[in-house]
């Protein structure tokens, strides 16, 4: 039974991180109907920024908790800045063009950012400092729930609550929902659509950065390529839950996390990524609207 719970919690923590990244995909898709291919790279840049900041602070002799907090803040700021800039360069000039153009631009941006980090930092894996401290009172349960998993799950939960409050109850959240419903109408009633799109990119990127920090300290090493696979998996999660739906992204993330962890735990660990891809293909073929999504008919 312990083994089952171990898989359950590792799936839950993995799924939480997918959910954090998936939120960025879903929010952007909800507003401008674009699969932001470069989103995985934003997450990777978040992880690298955290690595650099925590490296400096470790050498300077800061303690673990303050490093974790400062590195996370730095990662969030930088990822958001990158998300904002990417939108301005690669997507904004393409608004109103055919559907394929922004998608290709996004793929280009993704390749560019990967190689930018590869050239400016390193092509190799670098070890990520362990930032999350051991939690004493968790020790009796350590056979199936580690401190890192626990922190990941709790952090994700807190972030989700905050995000829900932001979207449901603040003015900017209302404007975001209005823009997602109908851009033209939102603009007519005085919503600054450009600003809302930027805000969406900033929030999505910030969430991805938190995911980046958490996964870095969970896995213990990162490289320039982690964004690609994580990005596709998070996208799978977003589609699984129903793209455009925020609770859907979370549900999708968790389902994917569990699929992977039980799949590798009970079937074979060689095919970890295959499970995710198969799930993606199956979902898109049989229920393209996702678990919580509504199917929409194209208007003629």
């Amino acid at each position: 039974m312990d083994y089952f719970f171990e898989l359950f919690f590792s799936g839950l923590s993995k799924g939480s991180i997918y959910a954090l990244i998936a939120l960025g995909y879903t929010m952007v898709y909800g507003i401008i109907e674009l699969i932001n291919f470069a989103h995985g790279e934003i997450y990777m840049i978040g992880a690298f920024t955290a690595l650099i900041i925590s490296g400096i602070l470790t050498i300077l002799g800061f303690n673990k908790i303050s490093i974790l907090i400062l590195a996370t803040i730095g990662a969030v700021i930088y990822s958001s800045a990158y998300g904002f800039t990417v939108e301005k360069i690669a997507y904004k000039p393409l608004r109103g063009s055919s559907r394929l153009s922004p998608l290709i631009s996004a793929i280009g941006m993704s390749i560019f950012l990967q190689n930018y980090v590869l050239l400016a930092q390193t092509p190799n894996f670098v070890s990520f400092p362990e930032l999350i401290p051991e939690i004493k009172w968790l020790e009796p349960y350590s056979s199936f729930l580690g401190s890192t998993d626990f922190v990941i799950i709790v952090t994700t939960a807190i972030v989700l609550v905050l995000l829900t409050i932001l979207i449901k109850f603040t003015k900017i959240g209302k404007a975001m929902r209005a823009t997602a419903q109908n851009q033209v109408m939102a603009a007519l009633v005085g919503v600054n659509v450009d600003k809302i799109i930027s805000v969406t990119f900033i929030i999505g990127s910030g969430l991805a950065a938190i995911g980046g920090v958490l996964i870095g300290s969970h896995v213990g090493q990162i490289n320039f390529y982690i964004g690609f696979i994580a990005g596709i998996k998070a996208f799978t999660a977003a589609v699984l839950g129903g793209i455009g739906s925020i609770p859907g992204a979370v549900l999708g993330g968790l389902v994917l996390g569990w699929t992977e962890s039980f799949g590798t735990g009970y079937i074979s660990s060689d095919y970890e990524d295959v499970f995710a891809f198969c799930l993606l293909v199956l979902i898109l073929i049989f229920r393209p609207a996702g678990i919580l999504g509504e199917s929409t008919q194209q208007k003629v």
Binding site: S105, I107, L113
Partner: peptide
Amino acid sequence: GASMVLMMV
């Protein structure tokens, strides 16, 4: 990568 973006823009 850069040329894909620039081309599209």
